[in-house]
Design a binder for these strands. Structure first.
Lengths: 145, 145
DNA sequence: TTTGGATAAATGTATATACATATATTGTAT
DNA sequence: ATACAATATATGTATATACATTTATCCAAA
């Protein structure tokens, strides 16, 4: 991988500093890649993440609160993401019977259909991201050598 | 490090998949941390990054274009970030003499003053982020073991 | 039972990303 | 010299983050 060459910084104040720059750079690359793949299906990464959570527990609905807890980024605003998925008919939304403050959210057939196409694409891209062997992937950070 | 425990995913489809999740998680943690530190000085991470670039070449001004190229995230909208830094009087902004399409941006004394306080805080946090030795930092990804 | 605190979700604001488009200026080819 | 492509920046839109606040509902203590 030529990732490290791309990082403009010529020297690093410490190994920890170098590691941080490397992680942030690699994560940015992964995120950019994922967002392009999601985009082909009219989704954002966060919408994709939420759909995956809902698929895991399908057909049991999740509350907005539980979605917030399970989202990779805890501070993401789940209710607005639900709103957008609902607009695309990828999730259903209804006030909970047992607690009328809560909203039950479930993935729809349409949502499952999109995941069925998109998930393999994302997974495949994970493998194609670099040419490290599995062993190297486990032990090393991209470009960190 | 107990980072890996925090990752909700129980199993991973491959080592590459696990690596990707780990990098994204760690980067999220770093970003969150940095943003809190910047916030204490009324800055965002992107504003901090731009100020650092401007400091490097101070007192030579940078065009918005060159800032875009040097920013860690290339697609960030440099002119709007310049605008906000300008509003806080941390940079100066003037149409370039030699090319009236370009805008020369330079860090002000006030901007340098903030960096003088903030940079050591960020750098120190890099070291405190985890308890890996420098050797481990070079060879391993946080929580990846 | 009523009151008050806790909780769930929604909403508001500032900033940022990602991308498309607009505007002004420069340079180049005819 | 003029027209047109290229360039530099700015602006517009949808979505997201980060955080504060609001609203509705639930629960528990007086």
């Amino acid at each position: 991988m030529e990732l490290e060459k791309e990082i403009k910084q010529a020297y690093f104040k410490s190994e920890h500093h170098k590691l941080a720059v490397n992680i942030l750079y690699t994560a940015g690359w992964l995120t950019y890649n994922d967002s392009r793949l999601c985009r082909d299906f009219g989704l954002t990464i966060q919408q994709y993440n939420m759909l995956k959570i809902l698929k895991t527990q399908h057909p049991v609905p999740a509350t907005v609160n539980s979605l917030t807890e399970q989202m990779p980024d805890k501070t993401s605003n789940a209710s607005r993401i639900v709103e957008r998925l609902y607009a695309k008919e990828l999730v259903s939304r209804s006030v909970s019977e047992r607690d009328r403050r809560s909203v039950d959210v479930a993935i729809t057939g349409k949502g499952l259909g999109i995941l069925e196409q998109l998930e393999p694409v994302i997974d495949r891209s994970r493998e194609e991201l670099h040419t490290l062997s599995s062993q190297e992937a486990r032990e090393n950070l991209l470009g960190q050598r």
